[in-house]
Simulated scan of single mutants.
Amino acid sequence: MTEVLRYTAFSDDPAGGNPAGVVLDATGLDEADMLGIAAELGYSETAFLTAPPEGLGGEAGRAFTVRYFSPKAEVPFCGHATVATAVALGERIGPGELVFATPAGTVPVSVTGDAEGGLRAVLTSVEPHVEDVDPADLAEALAALDWPEADLDPAIPPRIAYAGNRHLVLGAATRARLADLAYDFPRLEALMHRLDLTTVQLVHRAGPDLFDVRDPFPVGGVVEDPATGAAAAAFGAYARELGLAPADAVLTLRQGEDMGRPGVLTVELRTGDPRVRVGGSGVRIA
């Protein structure tokens, strides 16, 4: 029988952050099996581990192939399930460096202990990029969200950002605008499928290095993702390219507060490295 573990990522409280399923040995499971397990569990994503491909690198016993499934489909990359998986492995094989071969590319993850005796994981994204949004697609997204264009923050212009998968970044001019999320699920889902988007990253700037974010996720079969590591990585690339953050920066993203599952994501940018590092704590859900 397949053992399915439950962990939350980006919080040290099982009631916070984003819960993920983790299957540390998915040997023998096919895509239908994985999708069925993810759908039955009902979390936004479940990670499935098998042996690494030849030549992946990394220390023996600390390299893996990882696939991610939402309740509705496979996704190429999932940040919170990566952090959850890394913490689960860290509890079993100890802190240290891990290497994950994902459908989006190779993702190194570092697991360390924290001051309270828990574990923290930091993933390094694949190389990101940022692209413009077609005005007609932006208009459709705003219509689906029921957001007047006047509620957008002009300092956070709409873009599509990628760091393993694609996210539409929209800036909310006020925290109240961000808090009021009631959207047309089928309409936004259809647009996201057409644009190959994984989430819509809704952002409000609360300080120079502090952002509140929310991520509608209808393509995954859930209304909202509580803490989204892949979108955080994409937003880090976006913030650097558009000058919201310098080349060397550490950003803090707060997510999940409006859902009653608060979490904190740390986004690190480094000069000379286009990749983005996203970190947070994780803990098992009993």
Rank of each mutant, 00 (worst) to 15 (best):
P53K: 05
T252F: 09
V87K: 01
E54I: 09
A141Q: 00
L5M: 04
E40V: 12
L168F: 02
V133T: 08
V23A: 04
P71E: 02
Y238F: 13
P154N: 09
S281Y: 13
P216Q: 11
L5G: 14
A136M: 13
R159V: 11
Y183R: 00
L35R: 08
P154W: 05
V107P: 04
V276E: 10
L98R: 12
S281G: 10
P226T: 09
G118M: 04
A104N: 13
E31Y: 13
L251I: 05
G21W: 01
G28D: 07
L191S: 15
A231I: 00
V276K: 03
P14Y: 04
F10H: 13
T124W: 00
L242H: 14
E224H: 11
T266M: 10
A63Y: 09
E268F: 10
A26V: 06
V99T: 15
A206N: 11
G105L: 03
M34P: 02
L197G: 02
A115H: 03
A104H: 06
P154S: 12
D248C: 14
V267M: 12
P218Q: 00
S70Y: 13
S281D: 07
F48S: 01
A163N: 12
F10L: 06
L142Y: 04
F217P: 12
A233Q: 07
D12R: 12
G36N: 02
V283H: 07
R120C: 03
P274S: 14
G42K: 07
A136F: 07
E140I: 09
V219F: 14
A206M: 06
D13G: 01
L152E: 04
R166L: 03
V169E: 02
A73S: 14
L242R: 13
I37L: 14
V278W: 04
T106F: 04
P218I: 01
A173M: 15
A115V: 04
D153I: 02
L89H: 03
S125N: 03
H193G: 15
A144W: 06
G236L: 11
F100C: 05
A249K: 01
P52G: 01
T252Y: 08
A182K: 13
A232Q: 01
A179S: 07
A51M: 04
G21T: 03
G118L: 02
L197M: 04
V169W: 05
M34G: 06
V109P: 15
M259T: 15
G171M: 00
R175H: 10
T82H: 13
A237P: 02
L138Y: 01
E131N: 11
T82I: 05
E40K: 12
L269I: 14
L24R: 01
A286S: 05
S125L: 03
A26G: 11
F10S: 11
P218Y: 00
V4W: 07
D30F: 13
A63K: 06
D146E: 14
I37Y: 12
R284P: 00
P218R: 01
V75R: 02
F69Y: 08
A20P: 11
V276P: 04
E149N: 10
E91R: 01
N165K: 07
V267L: 07
S11P: 01
S44P: 03
D30R: 12
A231K: 04
V203T: 05
Y7V: 10
L191E: 14
T82N: 11
L41C: 10
R277H: 08
H193N: 14
Y7P: 13
E97M: 13
V75A: 08
V250M: 15
T112Q: 01
R261S: 06
G221L: 07
H80E: 03
A176R: 09
R175S: 12
